[in-house]
């Protein structure tokens, strides 16, 4: 196969574009990793390639005040939030996708509406509720408030997923006399696992990254989640921003996410697009 010069130009142009896209996508993260391995004053020299390999910043972060505690907080809060949302969402999505009842569309639109909510609009009310329940400055404040975005999202995605399951499997179970609860646990659950993993992962990422509620509903350093800890990481003095440790902390909390996302790439793309683009 021979190509004309024009075709060659187009081909090179196309791959140049691809390279630009890839470089812009990964360069900032690459640069954060590069910076995190620099020690002392080397951080103030601009390098494009790795020159230094020092784990000093990582030691500073890990031994520093409360960073590990923040990671544990974040894991706990995100995990509990996701399990709770999935539990409530599985039964609700079954009802929304398989049973016909009046007001179903309205309910679905309302749920979608809640996920589009500006979180600031509920901040004052939630603040009062959290104070009232006595869970201010505890992980439960975040578990409660994160439900506002994890629950609508999981319900929405699982509903679209269950709607596409063939009706026959369910009919067979009904003829055998299975109750709705049995249909969910015995018939649907085995089919739902892949969707649950994807939705759970996406909801986990959402909870892991949340900032506004975590910033507002915690006061002591030991209760902070990872994003708040990174945002408020300060150095010995006010003026001195500890860029090295900040980059090391950023890399620590981002690498697991990036690995998860790369492993579940296809499923995540499917889960994200199930949210809206169906028509």
């Amino acid at each position: 196969m021979t190509r004309t010069p024009w075709e060659w130009t187009r081909l090179i142009g196309f791959y140049a574009l691809v390279v630009v896209i890839v470089v812009i996508s990964i360069f900032p993260f690459y640069y954060a990793i590069l910076t995190s391995f620099k020690s002392g004053t080397a951080i103030f020299e601009i390098n494009y390639l790795p020159v230094d390999f020092s784990v000093q910043n990582y030691i500073t972060v890990m031994t520093g005040r409360n960073f590990i505690r923040s990671v544990i907080n974040s894991v706990f809060i995100s995990g509990v939030t996701v399990l709770l949302a999935l539990f409530l969402a599985v039964t609700a999505s079954y009802a929304l996708s398989r049973v016909r009842f009046r007001g179903r569309s309205l309910l679905l639109i309302t749920i979608l509406g809640v996920s589009m909510f500006p979180q600031i609009a509920v901040l004052a009310g939630l603040f009062e509720l959290i104070r009232f329940l006595g869970i201010y400055n505890t992980p439960w404040a975040m578990v409660l408030s994160y439900t506002i975005f994890t629950l609508p999202f999981t319900v929405w995605v699982l509903t679209t997923f269950m709607r596409d399951l063939p009706i026959e499997i369910e009919e067979a179970a009904i003829i055998d006399g299975a109750t709705p609860w049995n249909i969910i646990t015995k018939v649907f659950m085995p089919l739902l696992w892949p969707a649950l993993v994807t939705t759970g992962l996406l909801a986990f990422i959402g909870a892991w990254n949340e900032f506004l509620f975590a910033l507002t509903f915690t006061i002591s350093e030991t209760q902070r989640t990872v994003p708040v800890a990174i945002a408020l990481l300060s150095g010995a003095s006010e003026q001195e921003i500890p860029w090295g440790p900040i980059m090391a902390a950023s890399v620590i909390v981002t690498v697991p996410l990036v690995i998860l996302v790369l492993i579940f790439q296809r499923k995540i793309v499917a889960g994200l697009t199930a949210g809206g683009v169906k028509g």
Binding site: I46, N209, V258
Partner: peptide
């Protein structure tokens, strides 16, 4: 390429804000 473009999406907003704050630093920014 598709995997590569997912990376910015996977990075927490706070982390990207800090990463870019460093890259956009007036004296030492790349």
């Amino acid at each position: 390429v598709r995997a590569a473009i997912l990376i910015p999406w996977a990075i927490p907003t706070i982390v990207s804000a800090k990463m870019w704050a460093w890259m956009l630093n007036d004296q030492f920014g790349i």
